[in-house]
Design a protein around this nucleic acid. Structure first.
Length: 113
DNA sequence: CGAATGACCAAGC
DNA sequence: GGCTTGGCCATTC
């Protein structure tokens, strides 16, 4: 593949593990991949990454959607809403509540209660 | 190897 | 309160 990096591979794995109705941040993906400061590259990988992965579930740390998404920001919002993610008037998701960690259980650690 | 790039993050004005 | 600058880190030319 063109982008053969251990980093990108890790990103793909984690993104593919994000369940519907949940979202992850670039910083978290970067941290899980080995470098918490490499959030920028996560986006770069995402833009050129396979379309089979749920990149629409990947948002920035504010819970805000990205601008370079394939189709546009609104399209990403619709994709998330279609999976049960609530979008507020600002176009941001409840990151604190819908954030997903592959290393933690979907119940107990999160704040869904 | 050096320079450029990028769907970010945090701070500054 | 919204735009600009710098930094960070890894991939690509």
């Amino acid at each position: 593949m063109s982008s053969n990096g251990n980093f990108s591979a890790a990103i793909y794995e984690y993104v593919a593990e994000i369940p519907p109705g949940r979202v992850m941040t670039y910083g978290q993906l970067a941290a899980l991949a080995g470098s918490p400061r490499a959030a920028r590259m996560v986006g770069g990988v995402a833009h050129f990454g396979p379309e089979g992965l749920p990149w629409h579930r990947v948002v920035n740390k504010r819970g805000g959607l990205v601008s370079g998404y394939h189709g546009g920001r609104l399209m990403q919002e619709q994709a998330l809403e279609a999976e049960g993610v609530q979008i507020d008037d600002d176009g941001n998701v409840d990151i604190d509540r819908l954030i997903w960690w592959p290393a933690t259980s979907d119940t107990g650690n999160n704040k869904l209660t």
